[in-house]
């Protein structure tokens, strides 16, 4: 067995003034060369879990180790190794695509010619080089989504966290994004991602964690999960069987 790159132990989160436990005593590890999909219904605790893994919120109890470091003892080392692609377009609308990428790239430690070359190369890879000098506010949803993705991985992080990277985009942009994710994974980037697109997760991930009520219901490769439920033809069947048919409206 390979060494884990992320070790999560007894991780819980209960927000202040809330009786609901968003993440409840989770323990699991993530290993090199994995693409891990965290899927679950609304309010299952996916975003809270990924936010704690990114160091954006503090756990109530438990620990997260990334390459052996915790956010308390070596935050900067962890941040050098991770990239985060939030669900929202975390970009400056009045800056151009290139200006956005130059800024976020520089905040990740890139500079000078290396930074410029990487920005140019990555824009070309996602088919947006000709729009480099256009403001983000003029971009379509799919174009914004691609720039949003690039801004999180310009510095070639070892681990990339993605929160719903293909939500609200057309089929062409989605295809481009998935191809791009597969390519960077082959080049050595480990990916942890959340999605509601179960078929997309089935095609992309090497391992799936289905979470609900802050707990992991099951985990394994997509094929293992499908085979574990009798009569399931795909991941959606597995998901419905485990989490039920009722609506999950959360506030």
């Amino acid at each position: 067995m390979m060494n884990p790159i992320i070790e999560i132990s007894n991780l819980s989160k209960q927000y202040l003034h809330s009786e609901h436990i968003a993440v409840n005593q989770l323990s699991f590890s993530i290993y090199e060369k994995e693409i891990v999909g965290i899927i679950g219904p609304n309010g299952a605790g996916k975003t809270t879990l990924i936010s704690m893994m990114c160091g954006l919120i503090k756990p109530s109890t438990g620990s997260i180790r990334i390459y052996g470091s915790t956010y308390d003892n070596n935050e900067q080392r962890i941040r050098q190794n991770i990239g985060v692609v939030p669900q929202d377009f975390a970009l400056y609308p009045t800056l151009t695509a290139e200006e956005n990428l130059i800024y976020f790239g520089s905040m990740c430690g890139l500079k000078g010619k290396e930074l410029k070359d990487k920005v140019e190369a990555s824009l070309e890879k996602v088919g947006l080089l000709e729009f480099r000098n256009k403001k983000i506010s003029t971009f379509s949803g799919g174009m914004k989504r691609r720039i949003n993705l690039l801004a999180g991985l310009l510095h070639q992080p070892k681990i990339l966290f993605l929160d719903e990277p293909t939500v609200g985009v057309d089929i062409h942009s989605k295809k481009k994004i998935i191809e791009f994710l597969k390519e960077i994974h082959q080049n050595g980037t480990n990916i942890i991602y959340t999605s509601h697109h179960l078929l997309e997760a089935e095609a992309l991930c090497t391992r799936i964690l289905i979470v609900d009520n802050g707990k992991i219901l099951t985990q394994g490769s997509p094929q293992q999960l499908i085979q574990s439920i009798s009569g399931a033809g795909n991941l959606e069947d597995v998901f419905i069987t485990l989490t039920g048919n009722s609506l999950r409206d959360v506030l």
Binding site: L56, I82, P93, C108, G109
Partner: peptide
Amino acid sequence: NQGTFLRLRTNPTP
């Protein structure tokens, strides 16, 4: 609100 602040918080920049 744009999320850029959140992104910056995940970067290795104090």
